[in-house]
């Protein structure tokens, strides 16, 4: 019986050693492009592209199975960066930067269930059980994860009003949206 135990132990150990060494020496290198592309993506794992997080999206971009315009939060700047990295021409004309928005909690409907702050990928929701929740403007990326889980429809995405800091001149020939709104408000 001792001989059997010993021989099995020796066989197990040596096979394990061979497998371990093989894993180290014959390791398949991950596609380095995927890592580079992932570094370009926002990294909030919001899932708006339909892939499981930014790693999945980067993988799909590297395979060429996803369009460059897959990431709504990234906007035009990201499309341009991805196109430059992948060496392809990007058609920016169709890409609209999403209207900058943030999530907003409607105080009269919030029941303090804490679901939204558990799913927020950037910790932008503040709250505790049975207490009103609030959103940090600076941290919110308007990914909409919280909107999907709210049981009382108390959270919604609201377009950000243009501010003096974010205002810029419109394209010559077409008055900018902010310009018009500003005049109306004034």
């Amino acid at each position: 019986m001792i001989a059997a135990i010993l021989s099995l132990t020796v066989i197990g150990t040596s096979l394990g050693l061979v497998l371990g060494l093989a894993a180290r020496f014959f390791r398949v290198e991950g596609n380095p492009l995927v890592e580079e592309l992932e570094a370009l993506l926002p990294g909030s794992q919001c899932g708006q592209c339909g892939y499981p997080g930014c790693t999945g999206a980067a993988q799909a971009l590297a395979d060429g199975s996803a369009p460059l315009t897959l990431c709504p939060p990234g906007g035009r700047a990201l499309v341009a960066a991805l196109a430059a990295r992948l060496g392809v021409e990007a058609d920016l004309s169709g890409v609209k930067d999403a209207v900058p928005s943030i999530a907003e909690v409607r105080e009269e409907l919030c029941i303090g269930c804490t679901r939204c702050y558990k799913v927020c990928p950037t910790d932008a929701v503040l709250g505790a059980a049975k207490h009103l929740h609030a959103v940090f403007r600076e941290a919110c990326t308007a990914c909409g994860s919280c909107v999907d889980v709210c049981p009382t429809e108390a959270i919604l995405l609201r377009p950000l009003a243009p501010s003096l800091q974010s205002w810029g001149w419109g394209r010559p020939g077409q008055p900018s949206l902010a310009d018009n709104e500003g005049r109306l408000a004034a």
Binding site: P42, P121, T122, A124
Partner: peptide, 13 residues
Amino acid sequence: KQEATRKLAAERS
């Protein structure tokens, strides 16, 4: 903002 988002997401994970 993207940089800040990446940092927040990393801190959260």
